[in-house]
Every structure is written in structure tokens, then in C-alpha cells.
Design a protein around this nucleic acid. Sequence first.
DNA 1: GATAATATTTTACGCGCGTAAAAATTTATA
DNA 2: TATAAATTTTTACGCGCGTAAAATATTATC
Lengths: 343, 343
Amino acid sequence: MPKQKIRNMDAFSAVCGVSRPTLSKFFNDPDSVKRSTRAKIEQALAKYDYRPNIYAVNQNRQITRNIGIMVPNLADPFFSEIGREVELACHDAGYSPIVLSSHGRPALEARNLNLLRSLKPAGVLLAPFGRISDVNMVEKFAKDIPVVFFDANIDGIGEAFVGTDNDQSMDLMVEYLCRSGQPPCLFEMKSPLNPNANKRRHAYLESMQRHGFPAHIHQASGEGWDFEAIGSAEGGRMLSENAFPTNTVLCSNDRLAIGMLSAAYSLGLRVGHGSNCKLRIAGHDDHPYSRFTCPSLTTIAQDYKEIATRAAQTLFAMIESPESGAERGKTLLDGKLIMRNSA
Amino acid sequence: MPKQKIRNMDAFSAVCGVSRPTLSKFFNDPDSVKRSTRAKIEQALAKYDYRPNIYAVNQNRQITRNIGIMVPNLADPFFSEIGREVELACHDAGYSPIVLSSHGRPALEARNLNLLRSLKPAGVLLAPFGRISDVNMVEKFAKDIPVVFFDANIDGIGEAFVGTDNDQSMDLMVEYLCRSGQPPCLFEMKSPLNPNANKRRHAYLESMQRHGFPAHIHQASGEGWDFEAIGSAEGGRMLSENAFPTNTVLCSNDRLAIGMLSAAYSLGLRVGHGSNCKLRIAGHDDHPYSRFTCPSLTTIAQDYKEIATRAAQTLFAMIESPESGAERGKTLLDGKLIMRNSA
DNA sequence: GATAATATTTTACGCGCGTAAAAATTTATA
DNA sequence: TATAAATTTTTACGCGCGTAAAATATTATC
């Protein structure tokens, strides 16, 4: 008696003494029914644990409460962290987040966009590959479904962008490095997958010029997402060839820095900001492991949580009151200097 | 003309000259229709890019082609990697994988189980928290939906388990450490979240007894998933207190080892297997960063890909021919010793 | 206690597709 | 070319729920 199986809303309405349309209202917004009715429903709910069939629900809604979240690579802790924050923000706002990773492959990004289309999400939070993305496809997608970009921008597409101000963050790091020792060389990927890498290079060049020092850019060859391996191999090669004209290397991201730190260790090079150190290495992103490298990594912290929640809030606002803010928003957050032991 | 919008399968059947039921057959299995019919459909498909509404499809199917994949924490690279492999295996087999992370919180595991229920998956690949899981809930879940466990087992529940043989892997590591230097102490969490930790402790104890050496277990206090931080703080404290009776520490997993390595570095302790080193540290899991630690970490490699594909294959077999293999399967894979520089 | 305002129930239709059964067509076999 | 076999079309129903409109019941206001 207490636990017979409820097949559908009709059956549930029977055992619960409330009509099906009222139940439907309740499941869409529990506050939209009278208190006494709500109590009756919740009582029955505890007894029979019925839940509406999401497929039937979503079929009959013109719009679902799904939010698509898509990142280029969940195996990268940066995206793992930020994806988690976005997911929680969506859930807290009463939406159903669906996290997708493209596993570092632009082709999967395209496939995921198709998947998202069929999921009919109310909106999408998208960290795109950037130039490497199928830009036309992304553009078409963004015309049909509200999209807020985060981390990486695609100019002119989508409704808004939230990310870190690379100009500010790189300038901050360059300033610190110049004040505390020799001016930095830049170590980066030769053909970077991420548009932020290009922005950081430009920011580095401008900042060095502003500070009156010559810029030195050293590019690691290699493809793919194995940044640590590339940083270790190429960075190690450059170190052993004495390729860097100053004793300070600013890596375009922490993962390259982690690789280079490991190469420096193997070469017996003492890294750090002390006077007895021959080399300084800095990174960018405040990777979860950057505080456990040897030595701990001086870097720039992006505000993961703030980026995630702002992007999510922006999207929710658009969904809940469409056509209000017609202009495309662009939010750039400041990075924070994290002074540790490597530089 | 070339790109009018197709609203549903009826409309598509009109422009394509094939009846709707035949289309339905086609979308479920393109090979089930005549070649000429298939060609007609695919031709129209390229022109109008219609796709069936997945909500309507799944509502009318008694069973979907969804596969739920659930791990305790995607922010942990181990689960990130293995989750990715499982996801790809599902997709290659024509299923729709849905990856869920519990973000290290058992409460979210319960919530995700409810979510999975409503997704009506054909099967679920589950890496459970273990003891900390709501075992009753998992058990009920596994009664309704085919579940294959991986990484961590819950005895007697689910249809099968695929994981690494901790007895074998720990014995292998202990053997190596004993042969190449002093016998190891074990460093682990005091209240481990993962059942594998307990298995590894037992395996360590047995192996040390077999080798005729006294066992020494050192437990780090601390809660949560910040293993590196805990390994660094507690491991560093123990090192500075000279708490370890031998010069060799076997960490229960790589993340603890990474923390301890960073602490050793801070303390100026030279770690490695060379004669000029005072300390040896080994790990378990072959964490993606273990080759970039300073020094690189000697550890045990679990075969991520093999675990993932075997678990997936097992599940597919059950789904496609239910009630065939009635006995609960248990697959334990061997770990491999990865000799690097830390021990 | 009568009237108005609000909430609920009844009734009814539609969403897009799976799927079964019977009829019609196409293809294979003799 | 006639017959059998395979495939497709036609017809028809159902899945579980959203949602609109009208009828009814409940609550608030005076």
C-alpha cells in the first residue's frame, strides 16, 4: 500500500487528490498553488516518490530549463574548476546544467554543438576554442540559442563575454618581475590553441615596451594539449642551450611553467627569487598544483568563481527577460598577482 | 527552397518521399531499410538537416540509448582521464554518454542518482564513493538499472566490477622498494574517502609481513579532497619530526605524494633513489603530473584505458543480451611499476 | 450572507514520435 | 510470367505531459 508504483501524473493525481493540471503547475513552480494544495502534494510526494518524466516535460515545453556548459577540455584543471563553478551556479538558479567537454579536439566541439541543439537548452555557456573553432557553426548556433562566452571570446558573436583582462594581468606580472629582478622573457607555444595566448603575447610586448625593456619571445614547438610535456622538453632544451637572455622566464600559462620547472630541476638549476638562484620562472592562471611545484609557482590568479558566476548570471538575465539588454556585454576581470617562491 | 525549416518527422517524410514509419526505422538503424531508400533519406538529410526530437524519441522508447557515467570528482585527474575514456567508449558504441561528477560530495552522488533515474539510461558506469556512498540508495538504484562499477567496488551490488588489483600493485611496489633500498613506510589519509585506500593498507601490511619487515603506517589527518595540501602539511610535519623509521615512504596515492614532495623540497631534503639522497618517495596511480614532479615520481600505473573499455564492454554486453551472464563479474587488472627518479 | 476575486477542476487538444497490424508495393525465386 | 518473400506504406493508437478555456469550488471583502 505505501509503495505502489506511480506510472504517470494521472496516477499520481489520483493518490494525491489533486487534479493533473494543478500538479503540472506545482512541478513548474511549487509556489504557484495554494499552500494547502502544496502541502497535500508534498505529502503524497514523500510517500510515493513520483517524478515527472523529463522527456515528456521537455517535449511539450517550447523551451527547457537546460543550460549547456561546454569547455574545450575538462582534463585541464582550469576548465575543470571553472566548469564546476558554472555547473553549481546553474543548479542553484534552478536550471539543469549539462557539462560537455570537447577533449581538446575542435571536431568534438562541433559535434557537441549539434548535441546541444537537440537538447534545446534555454541557453549555453561556452568556452570556445577560439580561432580553431568552426566559427561559422558557432555563429549560427548563437543566432538560434542565447550564448554567453567565457574564458575565450569570439568577437561579434554571442550575447556577452566574461573573462580575465590579459592586458592587466600580464602588465601586473611584468611590472612585478621587472621591479624584483631582471625583466622577463616570454615562453609560449608556437601555435597556441587558445586565443588567450595571443592576447598575452601582445600584452607582454606592450608592457615590456612601456617599461623600456627589450622583449624576448621564445616559442615551443609541439601540438596538442600536453603542455607540461612540451614545456619540459622545449623549455629544457632552451635552458640547456642558454637561450634566454635574462634569468627570468614568464610562461604563458602555468602548465608550461610546470613543465619548465621540472626540466630546470632535472638540469640541477636552482629556481627561485632568492639571491642564490640562477633562474626565475613565473606562470599564469594559478593552476591548482602551482602551489605544490618545486619551488612553488609565482603566478596570476584568475578569479574562477567570479568568471563563472558572472557568466551564469548574465545568461540567466537574458533568458528570464529577453530583449532587454540589447547590447553585447564584455566583462573583463582583473587577475591577481600570487607571489610564491619561483620568481 | 533549399533550406525551409522541417518541423517534424512528418514534414521531413514529405520532402523526402519516404513514409514516416520507415523514417523512424531508419533513424533507429540505417541498415534496416533498403539501400535505395536509405540513399533517398540521406540525400534529403544533407539538404534539410533535420534531426528527430530526442525528447519525443526517448519518451516513446521503453529504454533509451543513454549511458550514465558518474565519478566522485572530475577535478581529480584520475577520474577526469578515466571518465573521458569511458565517454569515448560509449560514444563509439553508438550510445549517448552523460558524464556526471559528484564534486567530492557524497550528497551530490545521491542527487546524481536521482537525476540518472529520470534520464532512464540503458545502463550506468559508476565509480562510487564506496562506504561513504548512500549504499542503500545505490543498491536500490542498481536493482532498477544495470550498473557496472569501476575503480571502487561495493560488494554484492551491481552486475560487475572492473578495477585495479591493489594486492598485486602494492606488493609489486613493496617488492621493488625493498630490493632497491630500505623497506617502505606507508603514508595515507587517516579517514580515507576511497575504499581503495583501505585495500592498499591491507595489501601493504600483508606484503611487508611476507617480506619479513616491520610495517609502519603514518596517517595524515584532514578531510576532503585536497590531498596535495594534506600531503604537504602532514607529510612535511612528519618529515621535520623525523617520524619515519626508514628513508622510504610509500604514499597511498600520487596526490599525497605530490604534496609530500613539495614539502620535502621546502625542507631542503633531497629526494631520489641515488646514493646522495636521504629520502625516497613513491606513489600510486601514475597521476598525469607524476612525471613532472621534482624529482619525477616512481609510482604504479593503472591502466585507465583498459579499465574504462572493459567496464564499458561489460555493460554493453549486459544491455544487449540481458540475463545471459547471470553471475556477478569481477575483473582485477594488474598495475605496472613505473620507475622514475623519486624512489 | 451576498458578491467579487482567486484558485482548482474538468474537459479537451496537441506535442513528435514509437510501433503494431493490415494493405500495397517492390524484389527475388522458380 | 506467376508465385513467394521482403520491404514499404497506410492506418491507427498510445506515450506522458503542457496548456488553454470553461465550469466549479474556495477564499476574501464588505
